[in-house]
Simulated assay, not measured.
Amino acid sequence: MTRVANPHYDPASVPPVDRTARAFHASLRGYEPTPVRGLAAAAEELGLAALLVKDESRRLGLPAFKILGASWAVERTCRERADVHTLVAASAGNHGRAVAHAAKLRGLSCRVYLPARSLTVRREAIASEGAEVIVVDGTYEDAVTLASAAGLEPGVATIADVGDSGPAEWVIDGYATLFDEAMEQARFDTIVVPVGVGSLAAAAVRLGAEAGVEVIGVEPTTAACLAESLAADRRVTIPTPGTIMAGLDCAEVSAAAWPSLRNGITATVAVTDAQVREAMAELAAFGLTIGESGAAPFAAARLGVCRTGSRVLLVASEGLTAVSP
């Protein structure tokens, strides 16, 4: 699929970046900015001035960026609720593991709801953090519903990265750290970012609106919920028959992310599983171990969706997460 421009693009209406989480992240043991790596040969081939990869394959001991949002949402929740003894979350894999890891560091219990088609290795990775794993006989959206209901129990808090709750907003704020790091590490005028429920992309467009950087959102062809929502000018729910990009296998955009995405995303592009497999293999040849969702931006760049001569930052959001911990 080719690049589809956002007809509602209005960066002046995008909420500002909230950088409160940056100092908190810097205080965490083992924190350091993830690297930005250059792909000079690919940039020359694609006619780009630079092709850069924000490599999130190792972030605070986990193989994905999600801990930035989860840790900040847990921190904010615990500041506001002294009664919390158990955290719950719904996940396709990475968010659940991040919440479980944050819970373990604080000595809290954790329960994670996963959709039926989640891979066994992702279930095992979450369990390895000490969490109770509950596999739902249904979709990711069904898991979200059950996790939200569990959060009504006494002493239990739902750490969601989707919806309109406080944690869903704080997750977006937590991801701002990733983009501030990148701005300090490299010069770029375009960000290509995976979408999923949209929290990471929302953080990207807030930075983009502030810095004058265009943001292109990447989705699976089988789960292009942002593209469909932009076409309808409202959040819509779509069928999701499945994709190897587990973190992007989402039927609807988060309510917390939607206002930023509606006004701030420059364009969207959809990629196939086959294109992502090819992108993973090429990234591996460059020495980068990137998972399916993380390789989606490179697959999109390969389709020629970036302006000739631009300096492009690809957000490689995960390493290989479909392997045993």
Rank of each mutant, 00 (worst) to 15 (best):
residue 145 T to Y: 08
residue 109 S to Q: 15
residue 168 A to H: 01
residue 142 D to G: 05
residue 181 E to M: 07
residue 203 A to D: 05
residue 188 F to E: 00
residue 179 F to I: 13
residue 116 A to E: 15
residue 193 V to L: 07
residue 156 V to A: 12
residue 190 T to M: 08
residue 165 S to H: 03
residue 162 V to F: 04
residue 180 D to H: 13
residue 120 T to E: 12
residue 163 G to E: 09
residue 141 E to L: 14
residue 128 S to Q: 13
residue 137 D to E: 15
residue 158 T to I: 04
residue 183 M to P: 02
residue 153 E to F: 10
residue 109 S to V: 06
residue 129 E to I: 06
residue 196 G to H: 00
residue 113 Y to P: 05
residue 132 E to N: 09
residue 174 G to A: 13
residue 111 R to A: 09
residue 142 D to M: 09
residue 204 A to D: 02
residue 186 A to C: 13
residue 121 V to F: 07
residue 190 T to F: 06
residue 132 E to Q: 14
residue 193 V to C: 06
residue 131 A to M: 11
residue 174 G to Q: 06
residue 149 A to T: 11
residue 130 G to E: 13
residue 176 A to M: 06
residue 169 E to C: 14
residue 134 I to N: 06
residue 179 F to V: 13
residue 119 L to F: 10
residue 155 G to W: 09
residue 149 A to H: 13
residue 141 E to Q: 14
residue 166 G to K: 04
residue 145 T to V: 15
residue 110 C to W: 02
residue 144 V to T: 05
residue 167 P to T: 11
residue 147 A to D: 00
residue 114 L to I: 11
residue 192 V to D: 03
residue 169 E to F: 14
residue 198 G to W: 00
residue 170 W to P: 06
residue 187 R to T: 15
residue 138 G to V: 05
residue 195 V to N: 00
residue 132 E to W: 03
residue 164 D to G: 15
residue 141 E to V: 09
residue 157 A to G: 11
residue 155 G to V: 06
residue 169 E to P: 03
residue 174 G to S: 11
residue 198 G to S: 05
residue 154 P to I: 03
residue 177 T to R: 00
residue 171 V to T: 04
residue 126 I to H: 01
residue 146 L to G: 04
residue 155 G to E: 11
residue 127 A to P: 05
residue 132 E to P: 07
residue 194 P to L: 02
residue 137 D to K: 08
residue 156 V to I: 10
residue 149 A to F: 06
residue 133 V to R: 03
residue 131 A to E: 02
residue 111 R to W: 05
residue 150 A to R: 03
residue 196 G to M: 02
residue 109 S to P: 07
residue 160 A to V: 10
residue 198 G to H: 00
residue 123 R to F: 04
